[in-house]
Structures are given as C-alpha cells and as structure tokens.
Write a protein that binds this DNA or RNA. Structure first.
Length: 771
RNA sequence: GGGCGGUUAGCUCAGCGGUUAGAGCACCUGCCUUACACGCAGGGGGCCGGCAGUUCAAAUCUGCCACCGCCCACCA
C-alpha cells in the first residue's frame, strides 16, 4: 500500500504466475463456451495438431494469434468458442508407433491389423495430445472441455456419412488410375504429398529395331528398366523423320514384344530423339497417351517397389536401380545402346517417407472435385471468404480452377477405414455391411485430410443438429500457415458449403512461417529448430507470445530472440508500473472514467484512446506486429517514460493513473494475458479476472490540444537534457542559468505557438538539436 | 516452363506516393534519480539491390537487370 521505504522487494516469478492464472482461468471456465447464452457468437476452430505432435514454433505463433483474437472478442462480450482437438494424422502416427514397435523388434504385420490398432490407441492414450497441455502453458483459452479427435466415435460417424454421400452423388468412384506410389510407405499418396527434387540421372538412348527389318527407331529414357513395360513408341505426327513409321511396329528388345508406333501430339520433336517410349503403367504422360490410343499397360514395377514377374525372370525381384543397370548392360551386349549422357531433371519424392515416388497404375478410390470446387471458387471470388494477405486468395483460386481428382484411399491401417464392402464382383458402399454372407470390408483407410476437411462442423456435432452446431457455425477466422491452403483450407471450404450450405469461415489469415535465425527451415533433422516450450520456460509465455507477434508479418520471418527479449521487458515494465501506480494510491474499477485533473491526465487519456482505436483497426487487418508495437510504445514511451514521471512530479492525478493503467492492461491482455492478469490482481479496487474484463473503452476522444501541449513539454525537456548532456553537466544538476525543468508543465500553460503537430504515434526523440 | 515474394541502419524487420525514412537488438556517452540497472537519459549510424521511366513529389508506381527464396506444372 504505502510505506515505500520498507516495502519488501517484490519479485516477479513468471513461472509461478503462469501456473496460477492458468488454473484460475480453468476454474472460472474462461474458455468454456455456452451455446445457450444469448448475444453474438465468435468461433475459431483450431487447426488440429497431430496427436503425435509437440508444440513447435508454428503452433506457438498460430495459437498466440488465435488466442489474441478470441480473448479480444470474449472481453468484448461475445460468446466465444475456440474449438479444441487433435488430428489422428494417419501416416505420421502410424509411423511413430511402428518405430516404437521396431525398438522391440516387432513389425506391424506381426501383430495383425486389429492388434496394431489397439497399440496405436494405447499409444495415443499414453503420449498423444501432449500438445494440448503445451497450449495451456502458452495461455491459450481453448474450450478444453469439448476436446475432439478426428477418430472419436461421433467424428468418425460424420466421416463415414460424408464418404457414403459423396459416393451416392457420384463424386467418389473407384478406378484404375495412375497414382503416386510411395514405396517407402507402401501406399498411394496424393499429388499434394509429392515434392519435386532436382536429380541427375543418366539418359540412355536405345534402338528399337523395326519389325520388318528396315531399320530402327531410337528412343531416349532416364528409366531404362521401364522399357520392359513398353507397349508402344510414340512420335509427333508432324515430325517428318518419323511420320512414315506411324502404324508400323517395332520389336521391343530383351522382351521381344511387337509394339506399334503411334502418332501423338504430346511428343516433342526437339526433345531427346523425338521418339518416346510409351510405358503406360509407370509414367503419367504415357498413361494418358495409352488412354488416347487404347494401348495396354504392362506393370513391371510392383507396389513393393521391385520388378514384377511381368518384367521377366531375368529381372523380376530386382530393385528398379538394379534392374536399370542390368537392362543397360544387356542392351549394350546386343549393341542397342546408342548414347549415354548425364541428364538433370526434377523427380517426384514422397513428402511422407522421402522415397522416390513410383508412378504406377493402381486401383484406388478417387473423389472428383469439380462440382464441389465451383461454389468454393465463387465464395472466394465474391469475398464471402477473404484471405489475408489477399495474394493467397489468388493462389487458392488458381489451384481450385484446375482442381484434379483426389485420391482418397491410403494403404494404411491407422485411419478411417473405407465404408466399402466387396463380395466377388459386387461392391457395396454404405454405413453398414450389407446383409448376407461373404462380404469383406475394404482394407484401406481415408486420406487424413478427408476427415480434416470436415473439422469446422464435425467438431460441433454434425450430422447431429446440436446446440453447438446451431450456435457456433460458421466460424469467424481460420488462422493457419500457407502450406496447407490446398491440403486443408480449400477442402474445408468445399465441404462446409456442401454439407452446411455455408462457408466454414469468413476470414482466412495466413500467418508467417518462422524460420531459423539463419534463414533456414526450422527442422529437427537439420538441428535448426527452436523449441517454444523451452522458450516459455526461459522467458515466460507472455514474452514468447509478444515476441512472436512482433515477428509476424506478411512474409516469412527469421526467429529473433531479440523480439522475445522485448516482450520480457514489456512484462517487467508493466509489472513495475503497476507497483508504482498502486503505491501512489491509484485505484481501478471506477464506474466512470475519473475526470482528468491536469493536462497530463488529458494527454494520457488521449494517447490511450488513439492507440485503442488504432489497435482495433490493426487487428481487423491482421497487422499484428504493428498492434504489438503500438502497445509496447504506449506502455514504454507514453505511460512510463512521461506520464508516470509527471505523476511523480505531481503533474498527474492518481485516480487517472489508476484508470489509465486499467485501460492499458485491458488493451494488452489479449497479447500478454498472464502479466496483465497478475497486475490487475495487484491493483486496489480490482474485481474479477482481467480475462473477463470489458475491453479498453477509450476513456475519451483524442484530445489534440493536450497532445500538442505535452509534445511541447517533451520537446523542451528533451532539449534541456540534450543541452546538459552536451555540456557534460550532471542530469540532476540544477541549471541556475536555465529555465527550471521541473515545473515545465505549469510554466508552459498556455503554450504559445503550438509546435507542428506530428499526427501521433510517438514523438521523436531526436529533435531539438540546437536547444 | 508458369506464378508469387524478397533485396531499407552492423543484425532481424516495419514503412509501400507527400514534410528531415522508423522499431527492437547491437554500438557510443552519462546516470545505482525512493516503480523498474531485465532500468533511465542523451547520441552515432541508411545515396531504401542496380539501371531507366511516370510524377510537382518515389523505399513507396512502371519496365528491365542482378542475386535470394517459395509455390504450381505429366516433357521422356
């Protein structure tokens, strides 16, 4: 209270503070949504982290952003719902458990499907969802009581229903089609799970003798082993060198198969030899050519990534690389290799396993996306869904306009097993197995993203018409990283429109990717990762939140410890300012803003009003680093450096100081919830939690006159300080010859020529050169 | 092959048509001033990647160039 002299040093123990308030918020049900409460609703669905996941920098930033938004609206009185949950993450989770089992020398095949799945569920029970606890440490006020999982019963029911429905509508179908086969994973993967890498291969030119012995046609390839599966040679019909050969046949070396020469516009005469070997089973290009010409496909590489029996006894069982070498040797022995040279090109690799993707024909389930995409395109075109930054909307549209069928089946065990049953040639798609004996269920599971696509409504209970669904759909904002715009965001828009008749969110905010300090990707394998949990332990959650917000931008940013330090300084500063104001008998909890007693009082109110208005605007535009910066400078420059000094000099009133601090805390709370809660609790007159405090009501309109006056004071005082500093005079030495600095405010009233007003932010410290 | 973005103080980044270009950190100087030395005060430092153009006015708009990065794409 009083007695500054004997006040015990109050240490701020951040970890203890965080623990205490995390608990208090939970007790008060701060994150718990109440669908029955009237008023506006505000919903955010968290991008569900993987069950296997631990908090990384992307999560830390993204969830800080979401918590900032949700706390702001909660304080404003909206009924807020921040949907909490995790994703089963099929491939990632299965891989983790398999790796775990491998330590004990167990493979998943040893266990069998059901037992393996039991192990995964056990694993999930024991280790899954750690990340949820880490989100609490970050201060996130999710609705933890309604935590969902993409494989819990209700959610799984929604997934099954959607699959069956899309099949009934004719969008989902089964087909033999060229897929990206991941030999490392033993599964098909979608186009989006493939990444291209630059690879140097050897391009080999091979002579295929014409069947009538009249010569040969030379083809070029970087995959000689696939020639075993060739079923044609294609040339451009306009290519004079070869046009006359169209319709004739040649003999496939090593195999002896007679294959036709076909004409196809796709073939580029300038490339290679101008003649293309056609391997429909192992090249997407060739697959299309074969479809156009009705050519058969011969699969010579199997799903195990090895040569099949179709490749012939001499090659079956080899890896493609081994086979390639042997084929080239054999062709050389027959004198059919015309040229060998290095060739650099891009080759698909699996994002999941890192294996080189093997394009092959496989029987899979696909979803045609064109009909689903149409309204989702319109939604973004018309601005029903808005991307920030807007360029991502363009990116979304470009992809959506050329959307291709989605391969939704995966040859995994962990996931939503397809609701498909077979008996002989019969196929049944439905929620239940059909009547009768002999039906077996499809072994495959759905792509993880199929279930993720339903997240904004399946989490709220769909297909049941729950109060939550009624009240909290659609959500307001989706905040995420750009790498899942296609994988997830686009699909949610499509599914939301299809099943809810309404877009799942109005705003999509694409936040920065935080890179390692040296500009490389943050990754565990590179050793470039920075662990946010360690950061929280070392700096406090508020500092980490603030620092990340300061770093965030419209582009990728490098991690900067300096920004975290800045956050820590802000936390400390607020704490000390609170102590000062409390010691000066400043009180909070006024029914109405206290009347300003001095120009300094009017000024701080004006500065707060200005910053609050700016903050609202910046938040609307997701300019979060500018928002954080504004709060920082309001606290440091205006409130602490000037206003509190004026208060100490008797130029401001304690009542106003208390109220101003309250506004400051309310403004800063969504960014740095822990310290603001702690400061609030310290203030005389405080009731309730800052987390449920009304937002910073601007304590009055901007007061231009007061701002001009204080600006003038600041200039004079700064000028005096500079003068003294340059004269090497001690800062506190009274300047007998100078105007007295202390009563500056009083002396300057009225201010004569108002100095040029600088519209606001803060006053520069580098003026008054010649004072 | 298309598309997008970046290049601003030693470092990490704001600013994106209008008075002398900003922040944090780092640096220099002076202060243990009774909220805070995790602090206070004062200060130095940038021809805003290059070239050309539009404009009364350009980091800010246009074009070209140079590096750097990302996304999309079925050229053997």
């Amino acid at each position: 209270m009083s007695g500054a002299a004997e006040r015990a040093p109050e240490r701020l123990v951040v970890g203890e503070v965080e623990e205490r308030w995390t608990e208090a918020w939970a007790q008060a049900g701060i994150g718990a949504a109440d669908p029955s409460r009237p008023g506006p609703a505000y919903t955010i669905a968290i991008p569900p982290p993987n069950v296997t996941g631990v908090l990384h920098m992307g999560h830390a930033l993204n969830n800080t952003i979401q918590d900032l938004l949700i706390r702001t609206r909660r304080m404003a009185g909206d009924e807020t719902m921040w949907i909490c949950g995790t994703d089963h993450a099929g491939i990632a989770t299965q891989a983790v458990v398999e790796k775990d089992l491998a330590k004990a020398g167990v493979r998943r095949a040893d266990l069998g499907r059901q037992e393996f799945l039991n192990r995964v569920w056990d694993w999930r029970e024991e280790y899954g969802g750690r990340i949820i606890g880490q989100l609490r440490r970050l201060g996130c006020t999710l609705d933890y009581g309604r935590e969902r999982f993409t494989m819990d019963d209700g959610y799984a029911a929604a997934v099954m229903r959607v699959f069956v429905d899309l099949h009934a509508k004719g969008y989902i179908y089964r087909d033999h089609y060229m897929v990206n086969w991941d030999p490392g994973l033993g599964s098909a993967i979608s186009d989006l799970e493939v990444e291209d890498r630059e690879v140097t291969d050897e391009m080999v030119s091979i002579a295929y003798p014409l069947s009538d012995g009249s010569g040969e046609i030379v083809v070029a390839t970087v995959r000689p082993e696939t020639m075993l599966g060739d079923t044609a040679v294609a040339v451009n019909p306009g290519d004079e060198r070869y046009a006359h050969l169209i319709g004739r046949t040649c003999t496939l070396p090593l195999v002896g198969r007679e294959i036709p020469v076909v004409g196809d516009e796709h073939v580029q005469p300038e490339f290679g030899t101008g003649a293309l070997k056609v391997t429909p089973a192992h090249s997407p290009d060739d697959f299309e050519i074969a479809r156009r010409h009705g050519l058969p496909a011969v699969g010579v590489i199997g799903e195990d990534g090895r040569m099949t029996a179709e490749a012939g006894d001499r090659y079956a069982g080899l890896t493609p690389d081994e086979c390639s070498a042997r084929v080239v040797d054999d062709l050389s022995a027959q004198g059919l290799v015309r040229e060998r040279r290095e060739y650099s090109h891009t080759v698909p690799f699996s994002h999941r396993s890192g294996a080189r993707v093997e394009p092959l024909i496989s029987l899979q389930w696909f979803c045609d996306m064109t009909a689903l995409a149409a309204p989702a395109i319109e939604a973004v075109r018309q601005g029903t869904v808005r991307f920030t930054p807007s360029k991502w909307g363009e990116v979304y549209l470009r992809w959506m306009e050329e959307i291709r069928p989605w391969c939704v089946s995966r040859q995994l065990w962990w996931g939503h097993q397809l609701p498909v049953w077979y008996r002989g040639d019969e196929i049944h798609v439905g929620l239940e197995a059909p009547e009768g004996e002999g039906w077996t269920r499809d072994e495959d599971v759905l792509d993880t993203w199929f279930s993720s696509a339903l997240w904004p409504f399946a989490t709220l209970g769909w297909p049941e018409q729950t109060p939550e669904l009624e009240r909290f759909y659609p959500t307001a904002v989706l905040s995420t990283a750009r790498d899942i715009i296609f994988l997830w965001v686009a699909r949610m828009v499509m599914m939301g429109i299809e099943y809810m008749g309404e877009v799942p969110f109005r705003d999509v905010y694409i936040h920065s990717v935080v890179q390692a300090p040296d500009g490389r990707r943050m990754s565990k394998s590179l050793g470039t990762g920075v662990d946010p949990v360690e950061l929280i332990e070392a700096n406090g959650a508020d500092a980490v939140r603030f620092g990340l917000l300061m770093m965030s931008s419209t582009q990728d940013v490098r991690f900067s410890q300096d920004r975290i330090d800045q956050g820590r300084q802000l936390v400390t500063k607020l704490w000390n300012a609170t102590r000062l104001v409390a010691d000066r008998d400043g009180r909070v909890g006024h029914d109405a803003p206290p009347a300003p007693a001095t120009v300094a009082d009017r000024w701080i109110f004006s500065r707060i009003a200005r910053t609050v208005a700016e903050a609202d605007e910046l938040r609307e535009g997701f300019q979060l680093s500018a928002l954080a910066d504004g709060v920082y400078h309001l606290v440091f420059d205006d409130f602490c450096d000037w206003y509190l000094e004026l208060l100490k000099a008797g130029e401001a009133s304690a009542e106003v100081a208390g109220h101003a601090l309250e506004q400051l805390l309310a403004l800063a709370h969504p960014l740095i919830p822990f310290i603001t809660e702690e400061c609030w609790a310290r203030m005389p007159g405080a009731e309730g939690l800052m987390a449920s405090h009304p937002p910073p009501a601007a304590p009055g309109p901007v007061d231009e006159a007061a701002e001009a006056e204080i600006d003038a004071v600041r200039e004079v005082v700064t000028g005096l300080r500079t003068y003294r500093h340059k004269r090497n005079l001690p800062p506190r030495a009274a300047l007998v010859m100078d105007p007295p600095p202390a009563p500056a405010v009083a002396a300057l009233d009225p201010v004569e020529p108002a100095p040029p007003h600088r519209g606001g932010r803060r006053s520069s410290r580098r003026q008054a050169e010649g004072a």
